[in-house]
Nucleic acid binder design. Structure first.
Lengths: 341, 341
DNA sequence: CATACTTATTAAAGTAGTTTAATAAGTATT
DNA sequence: AATACTTATTAAACTACTTTAATAAGTATG
C-alpha cells in the first residue's frame, strides 16, 4: 500500500530501457515499430533515438523495403556499446565471462576464488578487468548458497561470509550496478530466458549433484526464496514411510542395480507429483548430465500413477552450466539496459 | 520484454489510486503527508484533493495541531462514496455482502444460486441490488472452482460452466469492473490483507472440508494458479509408501481414535515439511473450525522431526469464512480505488 | 507586542511528454 | 509524366506534472 508512484522524471529511464529491450529482443526496428510496441509517441522515440545514435549506442542498418510509401530507417542496438561480467564464485577459483549486450562472449578466464583467498584478491582482479574493458557496465555474481537482495545469507562451509552484502560491497567499490544470485536460481532464470516466452510460467530446475539435490523454483516468472531462504531444499520432502527424497535417491551399496534405478525413478516421480499438487509448474528441468530420454520417459510414466497426466509438468533435460551462465548473463544485461544514461 | 510503458495519461489514474489507498490505509492525512508518501509534488496533490473534495469523495477532519507553524488541513476518505458487492457462488444459493470502502457491511443477503438456477436469475438479482444501492462500483465473485483471468476453468459438478467468462459477462452487462476468484485463493488473500503487512510473504491456507483437502497458495504476495489451475490440490501429495495426503487424513473406520489422530498429525506434519522444503512459506493457516491449539502444537513438534525448526512456517488458525469474505472485499476494493474518475 | 522562525498554501515558470497538422519521400495508376 | 495515395519525418501547439519563488497563517521569544 501507498508506495511511491512513477513520476515523469522516471520516464527517461523507462523509455531508454524499453527501446534497448525491444531492439535487443527483436534484433532491429524502425521508429514507428518502436513507437507502437512501447506505446510511446513517435516524436519522443525520435528524440531518444537521435541521442542514442550520437552516443554510438545504435547502429543504422539502412532503409527498409518500401511498403507503399517513404522507406523507413532501420535501427539496431550496438551490442558492444556496453559489456558485462558474469562471475561464478566457487571454492577454489572464480570463473569469469565477459560478454556483450547480445550475450556474445568476449573473454573467459579464471581468477583466484574469494571464498578461500579473501575478497580483496578478487576485487583487484575485477579492477584489472574493468581497466582492460572500460565498457564493462555491470557485474553479475553467481553464488553456491542462499542470497537475498545481494546479501549472502548462507554458504555451507564459509560461515565468515554469512550475512555479507556482496552487492553493496562491489557497488560502492566500482560504482557499477551489481547483481548477486544463487546458482540454482540463476540456472532456472537462464532456462526461462532461453525458452519461447510463455507469459510468466512456473518452472522447477532439479539438480542432483554430490552435496545432495536442490531445486531452483520460479513461480509466475519470479524466483522463490522463501522466508528463511530454504526454498528448493527438496532433499527433505518426506516421500516414503521412512525416507525423504535425499535418502530415497541415494544409491544403496550391494543392491540390485535395476531395482535401485526403479526405486530412484519412483522417488523422482513422487517429487514431481508433490511439486504438481502444490505448484503445478509448467515444466521441470533436469541436468542433461544426470538424466537421459529413457529415464525421463520412465519418470513421466511413473508420475502419472500419482497424478492425472494432464496436470503434470513437461519434463526436459538441459545444460546446467549453460543455463547458469545464461541466467547470470540475463541478470547482468538487465542492469545494463536499465542504466539511465 | 518490450511491453507498454506507463504514459503521462495513465498518471491521473495512478495518482488517484495512490491518494485513495493512502487515505484508506492511514485513516487520514494532510496534503504534505500525501505528497511525501506518494512521491508526488504538493501542487499536484492539491489539485487532485480539490477535485475529490468537490465530488464528495473526501471528508475534511479540520485542522491539525500546530507543529510550530501554520496548521494543516486533515483529510479522510469518505467511505460511503463507493460501495462494492461480494458474491459467494454456491451450489443452491448465492450469498451477497454489500460493503463500503472501509469494509463496513451495509447489507447481507441471499440470492438464488446461479450454478443451479442459471445466470439470468442471478443477473436480475444483482440488477436490483444496483438499483437500490446506486453507489455500487464493483463486483467481486467467489467461486468454488478454478478461475483464471475472470474465466471459470473448472467447477466440479457444473460442467456447463467450464470455460465460462464470468468477468466478461457481468462487465458488459453492468458496465462495472468485476473480479472473480477461487474460494481458497480469496481466503489466503483475505488473511494476507488482515495481518501486519510483511513485504510480500509466502502463505499457504490449508483447508480440509468434506470434498477433500485443498490449499490456497501465495508466493511473494501473488496467488499461485499453476499451468492447469491444479496448484493447491495437496490431496495428491504422496507422503507414505502407499498413501497420499488425502488417504492419510481419512478417518479409518473401526480403528483406535488416539492412534488415528496421531497418524493424521503425522500426515499434516509431512505436508508442512513438503511445503517447507519446496516453498519455505512464512506461515500456514488452518481453518479454526478444523484445528485447535493442542493440534497445532503437536503438528509443529512433529514437523520439526522432518525439517529443522528454524525453517518451518508459523502455524496459525483463522476464521475461514471471515478470511474468504475479507479476500473478496479486498479484491472488490482494489477495483474501486483503481477507478479513473 | 514586535520580531524571528515554522509550516501550509498559492502562483508562476520550467520540463517532458502527447497530439495534431504540415512536409518530405516514396509507390502505383492513368 | 502527372496525379493520387502511402508512409516517414518534422514542427508547432498542447497537457500535466515538477520546481522554485512568493505569500499566508500560525507559534515562540525577548
Amino acid at each position: 500500500m501507498s508506495e511511491k508512484i512513477s513520476t515523469p522524471k522516471d520516464m527517461k529511464k523507462e523509455i531508454l530501457r524499453g527501446i534497448r529491450a525491444t531492439l535487443l529482443s527483436c534484433g532491429s526496428a524502425t521508429k514507428v515499430e518502436l513507437s507502437e510496441k512501447l506505446g510511446i509517441s513517435f516524436p519522443t522515440i525520435t528524440k531518444f533515438i537521435h541521442q542514442m545514435e550520437e552516443a554510438g549506442e545504435l547502429l543504422t542498418l539502412g532503409l527498409d523495403e518500401s511498403s507503399g510509401g517513404r522507406r523507413a530507417q532501420r535501427y539496431a542496438y550496438n551490442p558492444d556499446y556496453q559489456l558485462s561480467v558474469a562471475l561464478f564464485l566457487e571454492r577454489t577459483e572464480t570463473q569469469y565471462t565477459i560478454y556483450n549486450s547480445m550475450g556474445e562472449v568476449k573473454e573467459k578466464g579464471i581468477s583466484p576464488g574469494f571464498l578461500l583467498d579473501g575478497i580483496e584478491t578478487l576485487a583487484e582482479q575485477i579492477e584489472s578487468l574493468i581497466k582492460r574493458f572500460p565498457r564493462i557496465g555491470s557485474l553479475a555474481f553467481g553464488v553456491p548458497g542462499s542470497v537475498n537482495g545481494g546479501r549472502i545469507i548462507y554458504i555451507p562451509g564459509y560461515e565468515k561470509y554469512h550475512d555479507f552484502d556482496l552487492k553493496d560491497h562491489f557497488e560502492t567499490r566500482f560504482k557499477l550496478p551489481v547483481v548477486v544470485e544463487n546458482d540454482m536460481n540463476a540456472a532456472v532464470l537462464g532456462y526461462y530466458d532461453k525458452m519461447d516466452v510463455q507469459d510468466n510460467p512456473s518452472l522447477v530446475y532439479l539438480y542432483f549433484g554430490q552435496n545432495g539435490p536442490g531445486a531452483g523454483i520460479l513461480v509466475n516468472g519470479n524466483v522463490v526464496r522463501g522466508s528463511t531462504s530454504f526454498s528448493g531444499e527438496v532433499s527433505f520432502v518426506p516421500l516414503y514411510d521412512r525416507r525423504n527424497f535425499q535418502q530415497a535417491i541415494t544409491y544403496v551399496e550391494g543392491t540390485n542395480a535395476a531395482i535401485n534405478e526403479a526405486d530412484r525413478i519412483d522417488a523422482v516421480s513422487r517429487l514431481i507429483a508433490s511439486l504438481t499438487a502444490i505448484l503445478n509448474p509448467n515444466a521441470v528441468i533436469f541436468n542433461r548430465d544426470e538424466v537421459n530420454d529413457r529415464l525421463l520417459t520412465a519418470i513421466s510414466a511413473r508420475s502419472a500413477s500419482y497424478i492425472s497426466k494432464e496436470h503434470l509438468p513437461k519434463l526436459t533435460a538441459s545444460d546446467w552450466q549453460e543455463d547458469y551462465l545464461n541466467g547470470l548473463k540475463r541478470l547482468g544485461l538487465n542492469l545494463l539496459i536499465s542504466a539511465d544514461h
